[in-house]
Structure formats: structure tokens, C-alpha cells
Amino acid sequence: MSIGELLSVYGEKYLQGLLTTWELTIFSFIGAMIIGVIITVFRVCPIKPLRLFGEFYVQIFRNIPGAALLILLVYALPELDLILSYHSCVLTATTLIPASFCSEYLMSGINAIGIGQIEAARSIGMTFPLMMRKIVIPQAVRFSILPMTNLLIATMLTTSLASQVPLSPTDLTGVVSYINTRSVGGVTSFLISAFFYCITAVVIGQLGNLLDKKVRILR
């Protein structure tokens, strides 16, 4: 099929696919940030069981393949009388996995600050909240901007898991599979979806670089 034909017949599908991908990406990313921050607080707090829980969470969700997690959520949870809609299964999978990476980035952001600074802060009599507010968090956030940009792109790539369950409207990857199981879409049908993914990734990357340049700490 030519690009004109594809867009006139399936144009709306592609548009809906793009919007679905964006929607999943944004909600997953927000969720991943929230869970990631909570897990990171667990991992740095002085309470041992919470630390262990945080480490356990990260090791599980860092290492589980997305497909395996999605299959567990879709097929195994109903065996435990817990039935989630396809949409929430996808959203759960695409949130829990990036959350573990979010926590890893934040931890390396905290570790990049350097013990010397924290010891210095304490030795001039800063209280813990003051030190957090003035020394740790501002630097950790700035260190994390580029990794978080990459995480947002990775989250977008992860949302292609949505094509593995019957969703309506389906995401950008699902559209390609939808078109090509019904007719001969050809290479163009793939390139349209790929183009939308790439453009989104490039825009996110550029915005991240811009933001990073604004707030970067020069050493």
C-alpha cells in the first residue's frame, strides 16, 4: 500500500495509536516517578526491613522481562481472583518496571553528591531537613535530568507492550499488527509508526538536553 492509501484508510487508527502511546507513556512515567521516589526513600531510610524491601523491589522489576510481567498480570492474576482490565494490566506493567529504574537513577544521583559535602554540611551544624533541602535534593535532581529523559524514552518504548493485549484503541505498535494481519500494509505501514515513535523520542531528548544545560552543575 502506498502512503496515501494507508493514511486515508488507516489515518485515524494511526492518530489514535499515537495518542494511546502518548497517554500510556505519560501516565506510566508519572506513576513510575512516584513509586520510584517512594522506593528510593525506603532504600535510604535507616529502617532495615524497608531498605530490604526497596532493594528487593528494584531487583525484581529491573530484571523481569516486560512480556513476562504482562503475562503474569493478564493470565495469572485472574487465577487469584484478581481481574484487572487489559488497560490497567498494561499500565501496571509499564509503571512498575520503569519505577525500579527511576529508583536506580535517583540512587546514583544521590551517590554522585559525594560524602565530603554531606560531612561538611553536618559539620557546620546543618540539621537533616536543611541539609536535604539545600544540599542533597537540588543536586540529586540536577544529576537526574538526563537519566530521567532517557527513562521517559524507555517508558515510551515499554508501552509497546500494549500491542500484546486486545486494546481499543490500540497503540502505535498494535496498529501495525492490526493493519498487516488484515491486509498487505507493506514497509510503509511500519515506517509511519516508527516515524511517530522516533519523533517523540527526539523531541523528548532535545527538551531534556535543553533543561539539563540550564541547570547543570559545572565542575
Partner: peptide, 23 residues
């Protein structure tokens, strides 16, 4: 390089699964 990094693996899989046989 940017293209391969910006497109999800599943889309490439569908490309080789559904579209390459069409060719």
C-alpha cells in the same frame, strides 16, 4: 543509530514477522 534507539523492539519484531514475508 537514533532510529534504532527510538523504535520499540516489538515494532521491529512485527516488521520481521508480518511485513518481511509480504516481500
Amino acid at each position: 543509530i537514533e532510529f534504532t534507539r527510538g523504535v520499540p523492539t516489538l515494532l521491529f519484531i512485527y516488521f520481521f514477522f508480518l511485513i518481511v514475508p509480504q516481500l
